[in-house]
Amino acid sequence: MTATTAGSRILSLAHHQPTRVLTNDELAVMVDTSDEWIRSRVGIATRHIAAQDESVADMAIGAAAKAVARAGVDAADIDLVIVATCTAVDRMPSIAARVAHHLGVPEAAVFDLNAACAGFTYALATADMTIRGGGSSTALVIGADKMSDFLDWQDRTSCVIFGDGAGAAVVTRTDDARSDGIGPVVWGSQPQRGSAIVLGTTGPEGPPALFRQDGHVVYRWAVTSLAPVARQACERAGVAPAELAAVVTHQANLRIIEAVAKGLGATNAVVARDVVDSGNTSAASVPLALSKLVERGEISSGAPVLLLGFGAGLSYAAQVVGCP
């Protein structure tokens, strides 16, 4: 392909969640916690937990297959597959390659991307720029994580937060700049504070790698730094915060979500609060929450939606997109 000034837009969305639902009351039997304690601190009521034999690839495939079917595109037309994940157990082949093989995508560029909970918005921006540059015409972008594999189920500060799942989007080329397309990304990081969120590694004879975070550092950073990032994404897209139809942030914590939405000034927007039912699903959280809003008809097709991912690194990425 030759370089083009064309843009891109999201053609379809879909999501997949495991069937098992873990409630706060069930967690209270496993660890020193309670429904009141969890709801008051992070706003979560339930989360979905994958079975031992349900892998990250399985969940990614589940979401991707539905997204492709909804888009009405042929698998042979997909020329780029990106999977955002930080919980792939096997190093290779990539989750993206496994998704492509399962769906019958013949010769696409495939790779995984690890920006933790900011992964989907990073991957969406990468797909958008690849399409704008002429390297792709139809991309499949997936966020999928199985955090339950990496939790210390005796640490009540972390095990109550997370759930498993996947969300997927089909992104297609447009011939001109469109108001319902994918807007410019605002992204970056504060790597000097990267130790605030860690999923470590271990040798083959050692214990499994476990998730750890300094919740106070992450909370203060999120509630003070992310609203300006969101406003900048709106400015670059030429959309005022009051014009947004929806705000879909990473579903980390209900208090963070509401603080960012308030700081942004998105007074007329539906604010995604899927964290209440799904917990923090890492890279899956933004597409999963957006897919549910679309399924329920809470956003009109073409309406502007702010996406904001943030997580380990401390990384962030925001863009305004048109609702498919």
Rank of each mutant, 00 (worst) to 15 (best):
Q319G: 05
G167K: 04
T87W: 06
M147F: 08
S148P: 14
V29P: 11
A63R: 09
K146V: 12
A168I: 02
G200Q: 11
V56T: 15
A3S: 13
T33R: 05
S301K: 13
R296L: 12
G165M: 04
V239P: 05
D164T: 09
L314G: 02
A88V: 05
F150L: 09
V89H: 13
V29W: 15
C117P: 05
I78H: 08
V286H: 00
G313M: 02
V160N: 06
G43W: 00
H102D: 15
C86D: 15
V321Q: 08
L293M: 01
S300R: 13
T130K: 14
G134V: 00
E54W: 12
M129H: 14
V229T: 09
A230G: 15
V170Q: 07
S315W: 13
R273Y: 06
P304D: 09
V239D: 06
I131A: 03
E295M: 10
D214P: 04
A14N: 09
L140G: 07
I78F: 04
S8I: 08
A317L: 03
V286T: 03
R9F: 02
M59Q: 13
R39C: 10
V83A: 03
V141S: 00
H216Q: 15
D35F: 01
I78Q: 10
S40E: 15
A196F: 00
A51S: 14
A222Y: 00
A125R: 15
V171Q: 07
G313I: 03
V185F: 11
A169I: 00
A272R: 02
A269S: 11
L288Y: 04
D77L: 07
V223M: 00
P93D: 10
A84E: 04
P184F: 01
H250Q: 07
T224D: 10
A230D: 02
H250C: 01
V99R: 04
P287A: 02
D74T: 13
A67L: 01
P241Q: 06
M30A: 14
I82N: 00
G43V: 00
A65F: 12
A127T: 00
I44G: 06
L151E: 04
K262P: 09
Q154I: 08
E235V: 12
S55A: 06
A233V: 03
H16V: 10
V286W: 01
D149R: 14
V42G: 05
A57S: 15
A71I: 09
L151M: 06
S315F: 07
I299D: 08
G309E: 05
H216M: 11
A97M: 12
T224Y: 06
W221K: 08
A237W: 10
L11S: 12
A84G: 02
S285E: 05
M1L: 11
G104P: 04
L11I: 08
P324C: 02
S189K: 13
C234L: 06
N268T: 12
G194L: 04
K66C: 10
V239Y: 07
Y316L: 07
L13D: 12
W187C: 11
P191M: 12
P106F: 04
P207Y: 09
M30C: 11
V185R: 14
H250Y: 01
D90H: 14
R91A: 13
P207W: 00
F162I: 02
